[in-house]
Each structure stands twice: as C-alpha cells, then as structure tokens.
C-alpha cells in the first residue's frame, strides 16, 4: 500500500528561521499520521499563483494575499484556519508626545511614515483610516514609504521599524504600526511611551489565514484541520512550536475580518499597480542593501 500523498503547504519565507518553524510543524503532522510537506516562496504573488495553479494544496496567506486570492478566484477560495492572534488586530498611528499633532485632523499638511507599499498593517489599513477621516494620502497628507522586502506584505518588520525611526528622527509627524509591534517595541525599550503616544487606532482586522481552492479534497482538508486543531498550548510538547508561530490556539478561518484591507486596496488601486506615497531614501548601508 502506498503512503498517502503529503498535503503540500506553501508559505513565504523572509528569514531562515521560518523554515525551522515549518520543519517542526511538518514533524508534528507526520507524527499524527497526516503527512505534509512545505514549499517556500520569495513573495506572496508567487504563492497565490502556485495555489491557484494547483501546485499547492494550502497557502499560508497574508491578509493581502487572501484579498488577492479572493480577487483572482472570483471569491471561490476558502479560509480554513488562522491563529487566535490573527483575529481582531489593529494598527496604531503614533506621534511624538511633545508634538503639536493632537487629533487626526492635525495630520493634514504633514507627513506620515509608513511601512512597505504592500504592508496591510503598516501602510494600507492605516492610510485607509486617514482616508475614512477625510485625509487623502498624497493629497492632504504626505506619505513617506519604507519599502523593505516588498512582496512579503510587511511580514518583515523592517519597514515598520524604519517608519518609527523616521518619526523619532523628526522626518515624519506620525507613523503607523501594528498593535503587536507597538507592544513589543514598548516592552523592549525601542519605543518610549513617555515621548510618543497613540493618536488613532484602526478598526479591527484579521491577519494571516490558511487558504485553499474551492476544489480542495474535503477528506484531506478534514484530516489536516483535525491535526492542526489538536495542537494544545497546555501540552509542553506543542508549546514551543506554537510560541515560535506566535499563537496559543488555532481557530477556524473566517472572512469577516478583511473588510478594512479590502476597502483600502480598492480605494488605493493596489492591484491596478498604484502605490501610495513616495519611497524613503535609504538612510544607511543596511537600508540600501535591502
């Protein structure tokens, strides 16, 4: 009897440590009798194409890749699972505490620093918040973009971090960041809550999601999800893997949390090739090398 064909999962890798995490996840699935393997791509465009071409069974999509998959499948693709930490994220617009930007309206005529052009959390959704409040990016507000590893949809926090540096250096009056990064940078001292403050917060949105085509084999999907949902944070053998992936529980996929991004993508013509803001000049050899 031949062994069942492994379920092939695709993901984007921006750092070798991502591969280490997936090696552990693969071993977990194999130990539970659900063979899986993975393929890595350099960017989400390639990942979504591979999924739609049938080269993959499941894609670990960024929120923007999900919106792209919905667009390219006419809405037939399905969201099957996500981390608890992918749900109800928000992004903050942060300003200097001693500055004179007191309300969102004060941002008019000033500069906001954002992450990469394709970062949902550090560019598209925060700029959508400005637009919702009558501030048209590039018209009412200058946008300073930090294009680090474009194609990876802001997975790499470098652009988001550079946007914070631009705020702290006085090159921008505000910057955008994911709530998790705000918390992390506050905890490690990168961001001083005494000298910065949160000016505004976006509506909640969902982040990464395992995505399949409409024709994905139902039995394979059921088995794979059953194994995924067996991961238990209370089990020490599972905890390291879940910590590495940044979650305490896997949850069923949902599609209700992609509204703010879908709206921003449409408003800014992202998939028509338009980009908001001007890319920042590299400020260091490190930046130039990216």
């Amino acid at each position: 009897m031949t062994a069942p064909r492994p379920i092939l999962v695709g993901a984007v890798a921006y750092d070798p440590k991502v591969v280490t995490i997936w090696e552990i996840i693969k071993a977990y699935f194999e130990d539970h009798g659900t063979p899986m393997d993975f393929v890595f791509y350099s960017n989400y465009g390639l990942l979504v194409t591979a999924l739609l071409d049938g080269d993959l069974d499941i894609a670990w999509n960024s929120p923007l890749a999900w919106v792209d998959a919905v667009r390219r499948t006419g809405g037939t693709c399905r969201a099957i699972a996500m981390r608890d930490t992918d749900r109800d994220r928000v992004s903050h617009i942060v300003v200097r505490a001693d500055g004179d930007v007191r309300t969102l309206a004060d941002v008019r005529g000033r500069t906001i620093a954002v992450g990469a052009a394709d970062s949902p959390q550090a560019t598209l959704i925060p700029l959508g918040l400005l637009a919702d409040n009558g501030l048209v990016p590039d018209e009412d507000v200058a946008v300073l973009r930090h294009d680090v590893l474009v194609g990876k949809h802001g997975d790499h926090v470098g652009g988001e971090r550079d946007a914070l540096d631009a705020l702290l250096a006085g090159d921008a009056d505000a910057c955008a960041m994911l709530d998790l990064n705000h918390a992390g940078w506050t905890a490690d001292g990168t961001l001083d809550p005494a000298t910065t403050r949160i000016l505004a917060t976006t509506p909640p949105f969902d982040h990464c999601v395992f995505t399949v085509r409409a024709d994905f084999n139902a039995a394979a999907e059921r088995d794979w999800l059953a194994t995924l949902f067996t991961m238990d944070y209370a089990n020490p053998d599972h905890r390291e893997m879940m910590d590495l992936e940044g979650l305490k529980a896997w949850l069923p996929g949902r599609t209700s949390g992609f509204g703010p991004l879908t709206e921003a993508v449409g408003r800014f013509g992202f998939f028509e090739g338009r980009r908001v803001g001007a890319p920042a000049e590299p400020t260091s050899l490190r930046d130039a090398a990216r």
Partner: peptide, 12 residues
C-alpha cells in the same frame, strides 16, 4: 542569501 540554499522559490 541563505534562502537560496533553502530552496525558496523566487529568491535570487
């Protein structure tokens, strides 16, 4: 580029 060694499709 360690990602090339790891076989990441699209890396150069």
């Amino acid at each position: 580029n360690p990602l090339v060694h790891l076989g990441v499709i699209g890396e150069t």
